[in-house]
C-alpha cells in the first residue's frame, strides 16, 4: 500500500513537473538569431571581397552553407577563432597573409577627379565631384583597397594605421625580469611596496 502511494506521489510529481517544463519551454522559447546574422556580426564588414565573395554578407551565407571559415584576411586569426567558437568548427590558419589595419590616402595633387574610386568604394568613404579633387574620409575608410586598381593615375596609397594616443591600448602585463630601473609598469597600477619617506 505504502509503496503504491509512494509511486503514485512520484508519478504525480513527474507529471506536474513535466507539464511545467513543457510549458516553460514554450513560454520562454529563446528566439535564436539566425546563424547567418551571427556569422556576419563576426565578419569585419570591410566589404573587400578578398574572401572571394562580393561582400561580407555573401560570405556569411556561404559559411552557413559549409564554406571554410579562414578566408577573411581583414578578420585575421582572431576572426577565424571567433567563427570557430561560434560554429564549433576547427580553427584553421588564415588562408592569406594577415595585414595590419590600413587606411587609403589620396594624393590630392595628382588626383584628376575622375570619380572612378568613388564608384569603387563599397562604403562611400570617398568624397569629391567630377574634375574636382577627391579625398577620403578617414573614419569611414575600411582599408579594403578596392579603390586602388581603378585609379588611372595611381594616386591612392594605403597607409598602416599607426598607434596614437586615442587608439593606444594597455599591454598585457608581462612578468618582468627587470634590469632597467625605469619601466612604465613598476609603478603603474599602484605600488604595493611603497614606504614611508623619511
Amino acid at each position: 500500500m505504502e509503496i503504491a502511494l509512494a509511486i503514485a506521489i512520484m508519478a504525480l510529481g513527474a507529471v506536474v513537473l513535466g507539464a511545467a517544463l513543457g510549458f516553460a519551454s514554450i513560454k520562454f522559447k529563446v528566439e535564436g538569431d539566425p546563424l547567418v546574422e551571427k556569422i556576419e556580426a563576426i565578419l569585419p564588414q570591410t566589404q573587400c571581397g578578398q574572401c572571394g565573395y562580393p561582400g561580407c554578407r555573401p560570405y556569411a551565407d556561404a559559411i552557413a552553407n559549409g564554406e571554410e571559415i579562414n578566408k577573411c584576411p581583414p578578420g585575421g586569426t582572431e576572426g577565424v577563432q571567433r567563427l570557430a567558437d561560434l560554429l564549433g568548427r576547427e580553427v584553421k590558419p588564415l588562408d592569406a597573409e594577415e595585414k595590419p589595419k590600413q587606411l587609403a590616402i589620396i594624393d590630392e595633387n595628382t588626383c584628376i577627379g575622375c570619380t572612378l574610386c568613388i564608384q569603387a568604394c563599397p562604403v562611400d568613404a570617398i568624397v569629391g565631384a567630377a574634375k574636382q579633387m577627391h579625398t577620403i574620409i578617414a573614419q569611414q575608410c575600411t582599408g579594403c583597397e578596392l579603390c586602388l586598381p581603378p585609379c588611372p593615375v595611381e594616386c591612392i596609397r594605403m597607409e598602416v594605421i599607426q598607434e596614437n594616443i586615442d587608439n593606444w591600448k594597455w599591454k598585457y602585463p608581462v612578468v618582468e625580469i627587470k634590469a632597467a630601473p625605469i619601466s612604465a609598469s613598476d609603478t603603474t597600477g599602484g605600488s604595493g611596496g611603497m614606504k614611508e619617506a623619511a
Binding site: E40, Q45, Q47, P122, V123, D124, Q139, Q140, T142
Partner: peptide, 12 residues
C-alpha cells in the same frame, strides 16, 4: 566601425 561600414555598404 564595422556596423557603420555595414550600414554604409548596404546604403550604397
Amino acid at each position: 566601425a564595422a556596423d557603420q561600414a555595414k550600414a554604409r555598404f548596404e546604403f550604397k
